[in-house]
């Protein structure tokens, strides 16, 4: 986490292994949040890091790396989605969740799990372009300008997508709770 913003020393570009070790989890979760099915996560993560490897020389180490990685993940997820269009059961398996970290209290764990399921379902109602903005802003807590830079979008577009995404996300949560009596 701290890796992304720390740039006190005029930075050497990080090497692939460092990036992988520090951020494979972020990439994995981001892909999942962008709707890549659990069974495809490994392949998609692979693709992201192959692109990272190729693009590393162009990466500006002054900039936070997570949004940059998220931008790559977004494009890989879009490719993935195009490819997966014919075998269409995207949400087949346990999309929402990998193995959660060990947590002591089973009730807490259950609640967290339900929350994450709900988030996954609600995210799934968003189209990919809004979804990525929402994930970056409201989950990764990136700033508007960071998102704009990482995705190559005008700031204004970022804000308008975010606004719509938030509305839809909230509406989806409301709807899902009504139908399921969820948390």
């Amino acid at each position: 986490m701290g890796v992304m913003h720390a740039s006190p020393a005029p930075a050497e570009p990080p090497d692939l292994h460092q990036i992988y070790a520090a951020h494979v989890g972020h990439v994995w979760r981001t892909l999942r949040r962008l709707g890549v099915a659990a069974r495809d996560l490994e392949d998609a993560t692979h693709e992201v890091f192959v692109v990272v490897h190729r693009r590393l020389p162009d990466f500006d180490p002054e900039r936070p790396i997570k949004p940059w990685l998220t931008g790559i993940a977004w494009r890989v997820a879009a490719d993935e989605r195009r490819r997966a269009r014919h075998h269409r059961e995207r949400l087949g398996d346990d999309v929402g969740l990998g193995e959660p970290a060990a947590q002591p209290d089973p009730e807490q764990l259950l609640a967290a799990r339900q929350a994450r399921d709900l988030v996954a379902q609600a995210l799934d109602t968003l189209d990919l372009d809004r979804r990525v903005v929402f994930v970056m802003a409201d989950i990764d807590q990136a700033s508007g300008p960071e998102i704009a830079a990482a995705l190559g979008l005008p700031l204004n577009t970022v804000y308008s997508r975010l606004r719509v995404a938030r509305e839809r996300f909230a509406a989806a949560v409301r709807r899902i709770r009504l139908t399921e009596g969820a948390p």
């Binding site: 494979v24 989890g25 994995w28 979760r29 949040r33 996560l41 490994e42 993560t45 969740l97 990998g98 193995e99 959660p100 970290a101 609640a111 967290a112 929350a115 994450r116 709900l118 988030v119 409201d138 989950i139 990764d140 807590q141 996300f169 909230a170 949560v173």
Partner: peptide, 15 residues
């Protein structure tokens, strides 16, 4: 929603 998103944010799953 804040709590929901916080739960998602706290997730540290990965391969």
């Amino acid at each position: 929603l804040d709590a929901l998103l916080a739960a998602e944010r706290a997730a540290d799953d990965g391969p």
